[in-house]
Nucleic acid binder design. Structure first.
Length: 440
RNA sequence: GUGGUUAUAGCUCAGUUGGUUAGAGCACCGGAUUGUGAUUCCGGGGGUCGCCGGUUCAAAUCCGGUUAGCCACCCCA
């Protein structure tokens, strides 16, 4: 017997229903926020991903040479394809460009909790708007989708940080550009790395001041109030030019938070400069959604990436977006008992009394199907009692009973399978009656 | 890529110091039931005991290897 490849999943009807439940919420949310749906190829030139993420990425891709000798890869994420699509038509697209996508991605990694080799993602991005209003809209979309799933302020939090703020701060400490990225990489590992190791790795950048820096970082990453953030930078940054830039950033923070509060989402936000995000292309606000208990990896993550479209050969177009995978969120919802118990069921189960009425019954089956009802009936001849059992187990709301007595009168009985009530209806009025009865 | 841990029916598991034809519950299928769903009863299908090798008169059981699952590290777009 064959098995799925490691990290790949079969979706039996039940799991498929759950997947569709997520997709439905994602799609509905994106549409509520007026994002337009797009899609791109699942297979791309390997070079596209190398250009965005560097040569190291190749070992984490499903890549191969096609029959035409092209180096290709299954997409590990949507952003490069999206940046290409946006770049190619940037001048023709009305701003702001708000697009979303629900796509399957592939990453050649060892699987573990919350991480598979094939997974689905919900991506929502806004292009062409540099101000914090776009960031607020994107974060709002993320919060809304999680809320619609039934999660509350007791369940998840959005940790918000700002790479630009970090860069300005590190500049004020006299670091050059490459050192800044190095240090940010270490800040990202703050929660996971032992303090001694961290200190050791910071020493090349700060020498004797490493410990002092680490203490300041502790202070900074523990700040939860915007006013404290303002106070911190007033106290620690004196350079006039940087101060002005910092003031601009803090204004942006103010705007972002007030917008989200105005949307009634203030309770989900947590200022947390400890979030930096792995890759270097983020340029402003960055954020991640976590479960409150902190038992899962990030539910979703995103941020501002103002230079990526240009890096991938497009125009210089500011951008902000996020992605949410299906794996962690499904684990969390399952834990919270928030996964609905969807059953794929027909509306009507047709009970066929005997072979004599089969023809008439099939005719009515087709009429009901044309009228939009999902209809099931026994494909082979089985006993009357058995058919009711099958009707019940099918999950149908209605049984339509085609018996010989009723057939003689040109009618069938409709039985409500929940209440047991029956009513006789002539053939021509079956669909109409079902609609009426469903209203009651 | 590294380390830990597990593997018996579709699922959850039992299987004694190695000893007859490997079991249970649930699920599935059929019947009791030729015009009404429950319950119940009867019956049935389904296993290379993950795989390969070794020890032994005899292996689900002991040993070695291997593959896969789970968990953690690395990485995390």
């Amino acid at each position: 017997m064959f098995k799925t490849l490691p990290g790949f999943r079969d979706f039996y009807p039940e799991e498929c229903s759950l997947r569709n439940h997520l997709f439905r919420i994602w799609r509905k949310t994106a549409q509520s926020f007026s994002f337009k749906e797009y899609d791109g190829p699942i297979l791309e030139p390997l070079e596209l991903f190398k250009q965005k993420s560097g040569d190291e990425i190749v070992s984490q891709l499903f890549s191969f040479e096609d029959q035409g000798g092209r180096a290709v890869a299954l997409r590990p994420e949507m952003t490069p394809s999206l940046a290409r699509m946006i770049g190619a038509k940037a001048n023709a697209l009305r701003r702001p460009i708000k697009w979303f996508c629900i796509e399957e991605n592939f990453r050649y990694e060892r699987k573990q909790k919350g991480r598979l080799r094939s997974f689905y993602q919900f991506n929502a991005d806004i292009f062409g708007e540099p101000g914090p209003g776009a960031d607020a809209e994107v974060i709002g979309t993320l919060i809304h989708s999680l809320s619609v799933m039934g999660l509350t302020e007791q369940d998840f939090v959005i940790r918000i940080s700002d790479r630009h703020l970090w860069v300005l701060y590190l500049k004020s400490l006299g670091l050059d550009e490459s050192s800044i990225f190095g240090v940010l990489g270490l800040v990202d590992k703050l929660e996971r790395m032992p303090r001694e190791v961290l200190l050791e790795k910071l020493t090349p950048y700060f020498h004797d001041a490493a410990e002092d820096f680490l203490i300041k970082v502790d202070t900074l990453t523990n700040i939860r109030e915007l006013s404290d953030l303002v106070t911190f930078f007033k106290a620690h940054v004196s350079d006039a030019g940087l101060s002005a830039a910092l003031a601009d950033r803090l204004d942006a923070w103010n705007s972002l938070i007030h917008r989200l509060k105005a949307m009634g989402m203030g309770g989900f936000l947590r200022i947390d400069l400890g979030i930096v995000r792995g890759l270097a292309y983020y340029t402003g606000f960055v954020f991640e959604a976590f479960d409150i208990q902190g038992e899962h990896r990030a539910i979703a993550g995103g941020g501002r990436y103002d230079h990526l479209v240009k890096k991938l050969g497009g125009p210089d177009l500011p951008a902000v977006g996020f992605a949410m995978g299906d794996v962690v969120i499904k684990d969390l919802l399952s834990e919270k008992g928030l996964l609905p118990n969807y059953v794929q069921a027909p509306d009507v189960y047709v009970v066929i009394g005997s072979d004599e009425v089969l023809q008439a019954a099939l005719g009515q089956v087709q009429s009901l199907r044309l009228a939009g009802f999902a209809v099931e009936y026994p494909i082979r001849t089985i006993g009357f009692g058995k058919q009711f059992k099958a009707a019940n187990e099918s999950g149908a709301r209605w049984a339509a009973i085609f018996g010989e007595d009723e057939h003689a009168r040109g009618a069938a009985k409709l039985k409500n399978l929940t209440t047991g009530e029956e009513v006789e209806v002539s053939f021509g009025r079956l669909a109409e009656s079902l609609l009426d009865l469903d209203q009651q």
